[in-house]
Amino acid sequence: MSAYWIAHVTVTDPDAYAGYQALAPAAFVAHGARFLARGGKAEVLEGPALDRHVVIEFPTLADARACYDSAEYRAARARRAGAATVHVVIVEGLPD
């Protein structure tokens, strides 16, 4: 069963955030991730306006969690520290 990262990101330091962007793709590739939405046009219908929205599909909930916990993604998160406000949720998909 698929699982999804749903992330809301407000970048506060684009130069520092670029370090995250350079490292994070290796973690996503290693865990079978597929981007479904990444920073495109968005319309807020309820709740606070947030800058950037990302939806990433993983083959399984275990893959989604393993990606977040991986050494590659920990290194990317360290590069992002202080450069953005980030909210990430992992959501299990519906049965196939």
Rank of each mutant, 00 (worst) to 15 (best):
A7Q: 07
A71D: 14
A78E: 15
V55R: 00
I56P: 00
Y73Q: 03
E72V: 06
I6M: 14
A27M: 05
R38G: 05
D96K: 13
C67A: 13
V54I: 14
A30C: 11
V89A: 15
G19Q: 09
R77V: 10
G32E: 11
R80F: 03
R52G: 03
A84F: 07
S70N: 13
E57S: 02
A83L: 08
Y17H: 09
G19P: 03
V55D: 01
I6L: 14
M1I: 08
K41N: 15
A64Y: 00
Y73W: 05
A22N: 14
V54M: 07
A3M: 02
V54R: 04
A84K: 09
G93W: 05
A83R: 08
V54P: 02
Y4D: 00
R74W: 06
A42G: 13
R65W: 00
G19K: 06
T60L: 04
R80G: 12
I6W: 00
V29Y: 10
A64E: 04
H8C: 13
E92S: 13
V11H: 01
A37N: 06
A84M: 09
A33Q: 02
A66P: 04
A33L: 09
S2T: 12
F58H: 05
E72F: 10
A16E: 06
A84R: 07
T10F: 01
G19C: 08
Y68T: 00
G93H: 00
F35E: 03
R80L: 12
P14M: 12
G32I: 04
H87K: 14
R74A: 15
G82I: 11
K41Y: 00
T85W: 04
F28P: 00
I56S: 02
T85E: 15
V54G: 08
A30S: 14
L45Y: 07
A64K: 03
F35S: 13
I56W: 01
Y4P: 01
P59L: 08
E72D: 15
L45D: 01
D96S: 14
R34S: 15
R38C: 08
A78P: 05
Y73P: 01
V86M: 15
F28V: 04
A3T: 02
A22R: 12
A78W: 04
E72K: 13
E92C: 09
L94H: 11
A75P: 08
L50F: 02
P14I: 12
R79P: 01
R79E: 15
V88K: 04
A76I: 13
A66M: 09
V91T: 15
R65I: 04
A22W: 03
L94R: 12
A24P: 01
A83Q: 10
A64D: 01
P48Y: 10
A62P: 02
A26R: 07
M1D: 13
K41C: 06
P48A: 14
V9H: 02
A76S: 13
D69C: 01
D69S: 09
Y73K: 05
V29N: 11
A83F: 11
G82V: 08
A49C: 07
Y4C: 06
V9T: 10
R77W: 10
L50N: 05
A42D: 11
L61R: 10
A27V: 05
L23Y: 10
A24M: 02
A37E: 07
V54K: 05
L23V: 15
L61C: 04
A24W: 03
F35H: 12
G82Y: 08
T60S: 15
A81R: 12
H87W: 13
P59W: 03
H8Q: 15
L36K: 01
A76R: 03
G93V: 05
I56C: 09
A30R: 06
